[in-house]
Amino acid sequence: MGQPLNIGIIGVGAISGQYLAAFERLDAVRLTAVADLDEARAKEVADAHGARALTVDGLLADPDVDLVLNLTIPAAHADIALKAIAAGKDVYGEKPLAADLGDAKAVLDAAREAGVRVGCAPDTVLGTGIQTARKAVDDGLIGTPVAATASMLCPGHERWHPNPDFYYVPGGGPLLDMGPYYVTALVTLLGPVASVVGAASHTRDTRVIGSGPRAGETIPVSVDTHVTGVLRHESGALSTLVMSFDSVATRASNIEIHGETGSLIVPDPNHFDGDVQLHALGGAWETLPPSAGYRDAGRGYGVADLAATPPGEPFRASGDLAYHVLETMTALLEAAHSGTAVTVESTCDRPAPVPLQDAPGAD
């Protein structure tokens, strides 16, 4: 596609390391600048990766930045995205697209008006794990999909994250934090969601940080920490979803897909690879070889996929997909609190499948 897309990162916290590692081996993108509220941290990252350390405003105004990679906390996602769009730049952000649906819509509306592109994590669905499972579904190996289960249960991120506050305010919680991986995978596998029902609980008002310099500090909790529901896909398939920061451990499969003639065990959607297992009717469990997706992928491959897509053509980790996933999750919370089914007003196309290949622009 010619010259690489010049990337400026805003927010160089824990997740940025995974993006930086991916960019080192991709020639579809080039890191040119970084910014962070912690200027010393920004300079350290910039020096380590041959980039420039700028202020946030300086990066947004920099003509050498084509796309702003927005790795700020969820509460800041929309504000940074809107400023980048106003500067005429493409935006790719960490999930969720915004902390609430109104802000997410404002981002997409502004991008359409400005003629720039908006992408959003997770891009884990582009790896061989989810893509091999999708190919199995699309190839009819389980017949017509009927149902799915998806679960993420853990004791909470405060046990390992040194600054976990944002997980327990609006825009966080198990559903808004981890749900995007699972709901995006379900939409990729089974198509968009039409309506939801659900229930939720808020079990504790505080959490205790378990590691780092703030270990032992108590932080408030203002979101639901256990959410469960049923998603009715437009196809008619039903997905049961459980997202929890209130469980000690689980041995359940992350995602299972059940069809009329077979069942699939799908690997963890927080990772790019993993074994896909098929049990055909009358048969036994077998592991499918990788048959689709980007090999050896990592966070940042969604940015490279965007960079390799000609302007005006749909790319896979799109803002429209992220918006539909966010609306599905916020509708689930609404359903949990109202006790009624809630219609998901938006829809989206299933992203194009990824044939088995190396990443776009990879050396």
Rank of each mutant, 00 (worst) to 15 (best):
G198Y: 03
I209P: 01
D224P: 02
V230A: 12
V242E: 05
T203Y: 08
H202S: 04
V248Y: 10
R232L: 14
F245Y: 14
R207E: 13
V223I: 10
A185M: 08
S222L: 04
A194Y: 07
A200Q: 12
T188D: 05
A199P: 00
L241E: 01
L231Q: 10
T240R: 04
S235Q: 05
T228N: 00
A199C: 02
I219W: 08
R214K: 14
T228C: 02
G210D: 02
R207A: 14
S201L: 05
A215P: 02
Y182G: 05
P180K: 11
G212I: 15
G191T: 12
E217M: 13
M243K: 09
L238R: 13
T240Q: 02
G191K: 12
E217W: 03
L231I: 14
S235G: 13
E217D: 11
V183G: 09
H226C: 02
S239K: 09
F245N: 03
T250H: 10
V193W: 01
S235T: 15
V242F: 04
V221L: 01
A249N: 03
D246L: 07
L189G: 07
T240H: 04
A194G: 07
G212A: 12
G179W: 05
D205H: 01
A185Y: 07
I219F: 10
L190V: 15
T188I: 07
T188N: 07
L231F: 15
S201V: 14
S222H: 06
G210I: 13
T225C: 00
R214V: 11
T184K: 06
V183D: 08
G212D: 07
V196L: 04
D205W: 00
G236M: 11
M243N: 07
M243Y: 11
H202C: 00
V223E: 01
A194W: 03
G212V: 15
V223M: 04
T188K: 03
V187F: 09
L189S: 06
T188H: 04
D224G: 02
A237H: 10
I209A: 06
G179Q: 01
P220D: 04
T225K: 00
S244L: 05
T206H: 15
Y182P: 02
E217G: 11
Y181C: 07
A215E: 11
F245D: 04
D246Q: 14
A194Q: 10
T240L: 00
T240G: 00
A185C: 09
G216V: 11
L238P: 00
I209G: 02
T206I: 13
T228V: 13
D205P: 00
V197N: 02
V242Y: 03
V248D: 10
S195Y: 04
T225W: 00
L190D: 09
G229E: 04
D246H: 06
T203A: 14
S244E: 01
S201Q: 09
A199K: 10
V197R: 06
V223R: 08
V183C: 09
E234P: 02
H202F: 06
L238C: 06
G210M: 12
G216C: 11
V196I: 10
D224S: 14
A199I: 04
S195Q: 11
G212N: 06
V230T: 13
L231W: 08
R214P: 00
V227Y: 11
I209V: 15
